[in-house]
């Protein structure tokens, strides 16, 4: 009769961040729209979608941790002349933890229409703060493009792309 055992441990940890594409749709009469109605006398205006990068807000990030512990304990022996038997027990434990942080995800909603559904607790309709109040929190197109002498401190409109809204 013989005894056998096996023990294993695996630990994995990762952390990464990634850029997120953000866009803001502006109507033809939106005050932020550089092609808005009446921006020059007689200009009709047209809706646009602006793609932007937030240079002063950290990119979304993900932290992940995985742990695995595994153990086996067994015993085996002979049965009669040519037969063998074995009995073993194993235990394994896996734990995974993931934490993600996305600060910019709600920015388009903050600058756009806000939420217009119903509150999950009260069932009452959601009423966003006035758009001017919300846009004052993060004046998305108001500040600096990047330049060698003045690094971006707000939205990096140097990487913004303006396209006609569909």
């Amino acid at each position: 009769m013989s005894l056998y055992a096996e023990l294993g441990y695996v630990y994995m940890r990762s952390k990464y961040s990634f850029p997120q594409a953000l866009s803001l749709s502006l109507t033809a009469t939106d005050a932020l729209n550089p092609f808005r109605t009446g921006v020059t006398p007689g200009f009709v205006g047209r809706p646009v979608r602006i793609f932007f990068d937030t240079a002063d807000i950290a990119d979304p990030s993900v932290f992940e941790e995985r742990e695995t512990i595994r153990g086996v304990l067994g015993v085996k022996g002979k049965l009669f002349e040519k037969w063998e038997w074995s009995l073993d027990g194993s235990y394994d434990y896996n734990h995974t933890y993931t934490s993600s942080n996305n600060t910019v995800n709600l920015l388009p909603s903050l600058l756009g229409a806000g939420f217009t559904g119903t509150d999950a607790v009260t069932g009452q309709p959601q009423v966003p703060a006035p758009q001017t109040t919300r846009r004052a929190v993060y004046p998305v197109l108001a500040i600096t493009a990047s330049s060698p002498s003045r690094p971006p401190t707000r939205t990096n409109i140097g990487t913004a792309t303006v396209t006609p809204a569909p």
Partner: peptide, 13 residues
Amino acid sequence: MTTNYIGIGRVTG
């Protein structure tokens, strides 16, 4: 989180 307890008995011949 996952845990597994496994017991195996075997007879071979």
